[in-house]
Amino acid sequence: MKNEIQIKAVNKFYGRKQALKDINLTIEQGMFGLLGRNGASKTTLMKTLATLHGKQSGEITVCGIPIENSREIRAITGYLPQDFSMYPSMTVYESLDYLGMLSGMGKADRKEQIQSFLKKVNLSAQKGSRVKSLSGGMKRRLGIAQALLHNPRVLIVDEPTAGLDPEERIRFRNLLCEVAEERIVILSTHIVGDIEATCENIAIMNEGEILWKGTVSELLQNAEEKVFSAEVPRTMLSRVKENYIVTGMLQQGEKAAVRLLAEQAPDLPGVAGQTPNCEDAYMYCLYQNGCDVSGGEESCCF
């Protein structure tokens, strides 16, 4: 059976609130990025795929298996939740052994796989350490090891790099790319850099809807000729922010270098067209779809 996830017209409600709105998506083998703000319902979709949430309507098949067959889906799925944690007093080895057992693995298989994955995630030296003594990065690596232990065809990772230092984040992203060679890896994040560095195919979610789906290059192409830089006096900054979507800002003395999104070249001092990066393209996509992107957490410096 082909490694593919098909999501057709899926809707989900929490009481009266609709969390997933008519989701249609096809996810093929390799890295797939699910991008969106906090509260976009990414985790709901991830949990639905991991059989931890039900849906009210629509159809989902994972490698040809309907999502309703939860036991079969769980056998081929590895899940790393947003707040990964394990029993603090268990050792790293014991944790993996316990979770491997819950995945139905035999003793010999567990032993072999645990050794192999501990090596892969660079935790061999910590196999006797208690989970509570691990650093944040080590815990995430333990998380990825447990998710891959039973050799799943689908790996679902929810916000895996939040809180990691840059070095750990890069190491983690590389690890995900490695394992994506022979399976589907769905990476949910609100950090654009993670997607840019790892995924070819992406979908952008907002308020339970898929706003956009395609490849990263298509997303970048969509924002071409929409990104500009300008050097404006600091006194003009508030007016610029009011009229344009500012994706970056660097203040230098009396002047400020701004990076902004606009449909046409703005009438500003020192304006120049720029090649869009993934963050610009993501912000433009949100803007294009009517989302409020003025200021807030999505802006960053360049």
Partner: peptide, 18 residues
């Protein structure tokens, strides 16, 4: 309570075990 306290509920729920 152990699963909840360790925030390991979802990990356990998502395993194959019946």
């Amino acid at each position: 309570q152990m699963d909840k306290k360790a925030q390991a509920e979802q990990l356990i729920y998502s395993r194959k075990v019946s």
